[in-house]
């Protein structure tokens, strides 16, 4: 459950032949329970890719498949975590998390249990009755992640989820996401500008070229991570000091640099 496949996907905004080509021949296979991060220069179409999987955006050519079915519309099998959280400010933490379950008509007892579990998992218990505006950005994003997790989706889609957070909160959230991803692996498509974040979190990192965007290179991180036992370290900075980490990071950096230079030239 949860494989994502981009099959020769193109996207043109505006009119079909005179419009603006954002994506061209994107091919990417994300396996079940695999964590893939996409990095790429600004405007290369990362968000567009994610929105196509979510069902918010149509493809102009090619196909996007989830579990071998062509994506047609949004659905709770593909949960999205937005950069700006997109919580409902008129609902409490608990009501926000519960919202999707009520759509699914999950029975009340089961719903309460699921919400309690996820509140605990995200250490949100003491804020369950708070409104979003009463929480810090990091807390709000925790709620957004909890809201996505509780749906038990096949696929988690995260578009720069930590982009709006300060550096310290960001590190905490990264560690926490790694913890979640290892306890309860999901298929994750994660978009970021931060190369370190991608290398730290992902099993594979896909690098996109500048506009019209396409997948330029896919770098395997998981093999290195397992053989060097990154998960044995508790703190992100310890992992980032490892030679194997630095090596991968530099490699991705260089690949991205080529794209930036090409933009200028």
């Amino acid at each position: 459950m949860g494989a994502i496949r981009f099959d020769n996907v193109g996207k043109v905004f505006g009119r079909a032949n005179s419009g603006f080509a954002a994506l061209e021949a994107v091919d990417l296979d994300i396996r079940e329970r695999e964590f893939v991060a996409i990095v790429g220069p600004s405007g290369c179409g990362k968000t567009t890719c994610l929105r196509m999987v979510a069902g918010f955006e149509s493809v102009s050519s090619g196909r996007v498949l989830v579990n071998d079915r062509v994506v047609k519309a949004p659905g709770s099998d593909r949960a999205v975590v937005f950069q700006q959280f997109a919580l409902f400010p008129w609902k409490t933490v608990r009501q926000n998390i519960e919202f999707g379950l009520r759509n699914k008509r999950t029975p009340r007892d089961e719903r309460n249990e699921l919400v309690d579990d996820v509140l605990k998992l995200m250490t949100l218990e003491s804020h369950r009755d708070a409104y979003p505006h009463q929480l810090s950005g990091g807390m709000q994003q925790r709620v957004a992640i909890a809201r996505a997790y509780v749906l038990d989706p096949d696929v988690l889609l995260m578009d720069e989820p930590f982009g709006a957070l300060d550096a310290q909160t960001r590190v905490v959230m990264q560690e926490e996401l790694v913890r979640l991803a290892r306890i309860n692996p999901r298929t994750v498509l994660f978009i970021t500008h931060a190369v370190e974040e991608a290398v730290y979190l992902a099993d594979r990192v896909a690098i996109m070229s500048r506009r019209p965007g396409t997948i330029k290179e896919v770098i395997d991180v998981k093999t290195v991570r397992t053989s060097e036992d990154w998960d044995g370290f508790e703190k992100i900075e310890d992992v980032m000091d490892l030679e194997s980490f630095v090596h991968l990071r530099t490699r991705i950096w260089k690949s991205l640099r080529e794209e930036k230079v090409a933009v200028d030239g």
């Binding site: 979510a54 999205v80 997109a86 409902f88 919202f99």
Partner: peptide, 23 residues
Amino acid sequence: IDRSMIEAARMMGTPPHRLVMEV
């Protein structure tokens, strides 16, 4: 209304009447 609010509701599979009344 912030578009992402509606999209959040959509990705949670919100039926039309709940979309209107609760979002």
